[in-house]
Amino acid sequence: MQAGTPLLEVKNLRVEFPTRRGTLVAVDDISFSIAPGEVLGVVGESGAGKSLTGAAIIGLLEPPGRVAGGEILLDGRRIDNLPYEKMRRVRGKEIGAIFQDPLTSLNPLYTIGRQLTETIVTHLDMTEAAARDRAIQLLQDVGIPAAERRIDHYPHQLSGGMRQRVVIALALCANPRLIVADEPTTALDVSIQAQIITLIKRLCREHGTAVMLVTHDMGVIAETADRVAVMYAGRIAEIGPVRDVIRRARHPYTEGLMGSIPKLGNVQARLAQIDGAMPRLTAIPQGCAFNPRCTKVFDRCRTARPDPIDVGDTKVACWLYDQAGKAAAE
């Protein structure tokens, strides 16, 4: 999967929020890459920094949040320091975005056709009529029946699942090579979630679009992603091929996450849970941020922060896998 040049490369990204009581580091020195056509899942609890990473990539961090360090490269070109107008041309054209809540992502006052065509005309050199044809085509692609009629409907005339399909169509308007999907199924009914996930998977395969899929739902990741990054307290705890991470979780936090997923046919057993809560940004512990909750904690975890260590195909930020460190601890 890692062969060839990556489409997106994030190097040592750091996102900060200056506040009156000092600077909060919400995303702390994370690095990862996405190959063309690849689906990277990003999981983690609320506040782990996964949505902020997505927002930083599309250049839409809410002030006062800002990229304080590192680089974001698209096709080898830096995009984190582009002026607003240049970045605007990247957004929607090269990087599409899907947001969490389809009920509020669409402007209620315009027909979905008008919202599609305005996006198409903004990025592609097309007449209104051609853009409308493309809009109908896109609506058909995302599985909206009677697209010729639906195109003149307003968002409130569509159900939640339909609206998320429209949002996906909007993200695909200019055939971007990367889509940042922030919790695309969280606000939907479970039965609709599966449809939307299947749809995103199918479209990305057909169009060769890479996806950064931000979610807190391990099930969605398991079904969709090629690789997965597990985030904790603003850092990547573990990143690797989805099969490895799910079957052979290496980071104690990932193990805990896996243990907390209910399994069918295992009704009697209590769900495992990770004790404690993720630290607040104002009180991230010294050393490994996970150490107060970790069952395998040892001295070094409390003093030094682990950087990602290669273990097979995955990278794990845990001292357990640092041979020298482990030897020292034992």
């Binding site: 605007r88 929607g92 402007n107 305005e118 200019a174």
Partner: peptide, 26 residues
């Protein structure tokens, strides 16, 4: 502050279209 304005930005629309077409009309 609404999601549809954020989404309009994510779609790469021109600022003028966002501010006057989408925001002001709402």
């Amino acid at each position: 502050r609404t999601d549809y304005i954020k989404f309009a930005r994510a779609r790469g629309l021109h600022n003028r279209a966002i501010n006057f077409g989408h925001a002001l009309k709402n």
